[in-house]
Design a protein around this nucleic acid. Structure first.
Length: 424
RNA sequence: AGGAGCGUAGCUCAACGGCAGAGCACCGCGCUGUGGACGCGGUGGUUGCGGGUUCGAGUCCCGUCGCUCCUCCCA
């Protein structure tokens, strides 16, 4: 039996890669304009980075992480997300010692062991930013503004999107809020789903984003985290809202938004599409003021977001790919047609010469008939076909055919580059 | 993880339990060296895989793998 791709790890074929390259280029440019620089961290990390960073109790680490021992028995993991890796690198290379805020971005594959479905694969791709080293709510605003800017660049209408926003406070607020939630849910314990009965002990915050109707109903009038913020967190959130207003960025307060990762503090948000169904989140993020310290670095606040490329492309896919896409598809401009075997050497020589002059050119290697090759040349979108026949080559010429008009003329081999560039 | 549907040629899909087919694509010829049209011809299949029922299975049954969708979770 033939070997096939691993479940949930799809190939991205040449027909699709231009769209990917386009989206990636737009995202990179947006990041650069906002002053973020790329960091590339390994796809494999020690498993403990994620259990400590993301949280042992989270779904991502608990049941979705690819974990395996290497030959020395060290437990490694394919990264399920990148924030923990970026923070690890930040600490490991002393980026905090360089002063200011480290503004970093990344783009690459992540892995989660889940049942694959539309817009969610086991290997998927995320783009994201991390701004590490400042508690300023203006930085939260910048990160959210950047998220919106990316969508604008890609031509997504603002009306089709909305920002879900919440503040879940700091570790000092958490126990009080957690207790309040527990008090709210305990009387209803019997009616909660089994998952939520467990969450009630482990992390009652997670009950809030449970989708089971009964749980939702019970959660509807649950205490809101914003009512349990300390003065510092309250001020931070208030300032952020002021900045968002100033930037003209709309948001919807969502007291049930708690996010699935343990490291979040204060600001949490999701940018979601109104055109998508159940999986409507295009990107999500927030503040993680305790993460750097939890991973062994100096106490350092941070804020960031991550988005899924597949899902972005899905939302984009309903329209025609933009022109910028086609710039990345490099069909040949010039197609060489050696008439017989004897002209092959000269064809190869000319090809190499044209290519070194920066003229995209190609010829057929499939051994097809001349008619078929000319057909393929026309279909490839090339502007010009070059016939290399015994007769004209003996005069040091080739016959150039304009594939649009059908006009033909003889061109000395030595003048080919100039001729083609002039017509270019 | 649970539920539903679907796996036949590269692609889209036919075939009552009875000879595995069509369109598109691909290749060749018409045209020994010139176009996407047209005509003629051709290549292409372990019917996802493994069992079972049957004189006979693409079709029915069981298992398995994969895909799609839903639930859950999220990106």
């Amino acid at each position: 039996m033939r070997v096939e791709a691993v479940r949930g790890m799809p190939d991205i074929l040449p027909e699709e890669t231009p769209l990917w390259q386009y989206v990636e280029a737009e995202v990179r440019e947006a990041f650069a304009i906002y002053g973020y620089r790329e960091i590339r961290t390994p796809i494999v990390e020690r498993a403990e980075l994620f259990s400590r960073g993301v949280g042992e109790a989270t779904d991502i680490v608990h049941k979705e992480m690819y974990v395996f021992p290497d030959k020395k028995g060290q437990l490694l993991a394919l990264r399920p997300e990148a924030t923990a890796s970026v923070v690890r690198a930040y600490i490991e290379h002393g980026l905090h010692a360089r002063g200011g805020v480290a503004k970093l971005y990344y783009l690459g594959p992540m892995f989660r062991y889940e049942k694959p479905q539309k817009g969610r694969k086991r290997q998927f791709h995320q783009y994201g930013v991390e701004a590490i080293g400042s508690l300023d709510p203006a930085l939260d605003a910048e990160v959210i503004d950047l998220a919106w800017y990316i969508m604008e660049r890609l031509g997504l209408r603002r009306e089709g999107l909305f920002l879900r926003l919440n503040s879940i406070g700091c570790p000092e607020d958490r126990p009080r809020y957690r207790e309040a939630l527990r008090e709210h849910f305990v009387p209803h314990r019997e009616r909660l789903c089994p998952d939520c009965q467990r969450r009630l002990e482990e992390n009652p915050l997670r009950i809030l984003d449970c989708k089971v109707p009964t749980c939702q109903e019970i959660a509807r009038d649950a205490p809101r985290s914003v009512d349990y913020l300390c003065e510092g967190c309250r001020a931070h959130f208030r300032e952020l809202l002021g900045y968002l207003d100033a930037l003209g960025l709309a948001y919807e307060m969502d007291p049930k938004l708690v996010r699935g990762l343990d490291y979040y503090t204060r600001t949490v948000f999701e940018l979601a599409s109104r055109d998508l169904g159940a999986q409507d989140a295009l990107l999500g993020g927030g503040r993680y003021d305790g993460l750097v310290e939890a991973l062994g670095g100096p106490p350092t606040p941070g804020v960031g977001f991550a988005g899924g490329l597949e899902r972005l492309i899905l939302v984009l896919g309903v329209r025609e790919p933009p022109d910028k896409c086609f710039r990345l598809i490099h069909g040949p401009d010039v197609y060489l047609l050696p008439v017989g075997e004897g002209e092959k050497i000269e064809a190869l020589r000319i090809l190499a010469q044209l290519r070194r002059a920066g003229i995209p050119s190609d010829m057929d290697y499939a051994g097809r008939s001349l008619r078929k090759r000319l057909q393929a040349a026309a279909r490839s979108g090339a502007r010009c076909a070059l016939f290399l026949g015994e007769e004209e080559l003996s005069r040091g010429e080739v016959k150039a055919r304009d594939l649009a008009s059908g006009e033909e003329e003889y061109v000395p081999v030595g003048e080919l580059v100039d001729y083609l560039k002039r017509r270019g």
